[in-house]
Simulated scan of single mutants.
Amino acid sequence: MLDWITNTITALNYWGIALLMFLENIIPPIPSELIMPLAGFTVTQGKLTFWGVIVAGTTGSMLGALPWYYVSLKVGEHQLKKWVDRYGGWVTLTNEDIKKSQDWFKKYGGGVVLFGRLIPGIRTLISIPAGLQKMPFLEFFGYSLIGSLCWNLLLTYAGFVLGKNYKLVDKFLGPVTIVVLGGLVLLFIFWLVQRKKQRKRQ
């Protein structure tokens, strides 16, 4: 897997990063935890620019988030689960994965799309409940863009700082993700409180 990711980025540069991040959002086992840190390491070698990597990775992430959203929106839960029973193994997707992502969505609302993009194992699947719950496209796109941008910034910067040790990103990602997620949750709560105050004033 690592050799394939390395060869793709080396051969296609920004296009390779965008392609890999697109596939990462379609096929869960392809890890962004390796793609973006490796791209960050490539920046230290002067082959790519930091912001070019961010734009490429985020573009690929956004393009990859759309297929599952539209499929879920159009076919509905019953047909989607029926399809997953037959073909889900090809993309390592199970009905249990769908149920887990739906539970997250129902528990935390639309904002979970943003936070879900920062959580390994959930980020690839979060488009599905958004589509099943018929989340408005602009809201889905906005939350996905912010979450994907934050995630790609975190991973790319980590790879940039660690250099040749970029593989360590995956090891330390859990605690860092929790800290970042906690900060975003606090910001989201603050935003909700301020919004309620504005409504009361009106």
Score class of each variant (00 low, 15 high):
Thr59Asn: 04
Thr59Ala: 12
Gly60His: 02
Ser61Val: 00
Ser61Trp: 00
Ser61Lys: 02
Met62Asn: 05
Met62Arg: 03
Met62Trp: 04
Met62Tyr: 07
Gly64Glu: 10
Ala65Met: 04
Ala65Phe: 00
Ala65Glu: 01
Leu66Gln: 12
Pro67Val: 09
Pro67His: 08
Pro67Leu: 06
Pro67Tyr: 04
Trp68Asp: 01
Trp68Ala: 14
Tyr69Asn: 00
Tyr69Ala: 00
Tyr69Met: 01
Tyr69Pro: 00
Tyr69Cys: 01
Tyr70Phe: 14
Tyr70Asp: 00
Val71Tyr: 05
Val71Phe: 06
Leu73Gly: 08
Leu73Pro: 05
Lys74Val: 14
Val75Ile: 15
Val75Thr: 09
Val75Pro: 02
Val75Met: 15
Gly76Glu: 07
Glu77Thr: 14
His78Tyr: 08
Gln79Met: 13
Gln79Trp: 09
Gln79Ala: 14
Gln79Ile: 14
Leu80Tyr: 03
Leu80Glu: 03
Leu80Asp: 03
Lys81Pro: 04
Lys82Ala: 13
Trp83Leu: 15
Trp83Phe: 12
Val84Glu: 01
Val84Cys: 07
Val84Asn: 00
Val84Ala: 07
Arg86Gln: 14
Arg86Phe: 08
Arg86Trp: 07
Arg86Tyr: 07
Tyr87His: 13
Tyr87Pro: 05
Tyr87Asn: 10
Tyr87Leu: 15
Gly88Tyr: 01
Gly88Thr: 03
Gly88Asn: 04
Gly89Cys: 11
Gly89Lys: 14
Gly89Glu: 10
Gly89Ser: 10
Gly89Asn: 11
Trp90Thr: 12
Trp90Ile: 15
Val91Gln: 07
Val91Ile: 15
Val91Asp: 08
Thr92Gln: 11
Thr92Tyr: 06
Leu93Cys: 10
Thr94Leu: 12
Thr94Asp: 09
Asn95Met: 12
Asn95Glu: 11
Glu96Cys: 09
Asp97Gly: 08
Ile98Lys: 01
Ile98Val: 15
Lys99His: 08
Lys100Gly: 06
Lys100Ala: 14
Ser101Arg: 03
Gln102Met: 15
Gln102Gly: 06
Asp103Pro: 04
Asp103His: 06
Asp103Ile: 15
Trp104Phe: 14
Trp104Tyr: 11
Trp104Glu: 10
Phe105Arg: 02
Phe105Cys: 03
Lys106Glu: 11
Lys106Ile: 12
Lys107Met: 13
Tyr108Asp: 04
Tyr108Gln: 04
Gly109Ala: 08
Gly109Val: 10
Gly109Arg: 10
Gly109Ile: 12
Gly110Arg: 09
Gly111Arg: 03
Gly111Met: 11
Gly111Lys: 06
Gly111His: 04
Gly111Asn: 09
Gly111Val: 11
Val112Ile: 14
Val112Leu: 09
Val113Lys: 01
Val113Pro: 01
Leu114Cys: 07
Leu114Val: 09
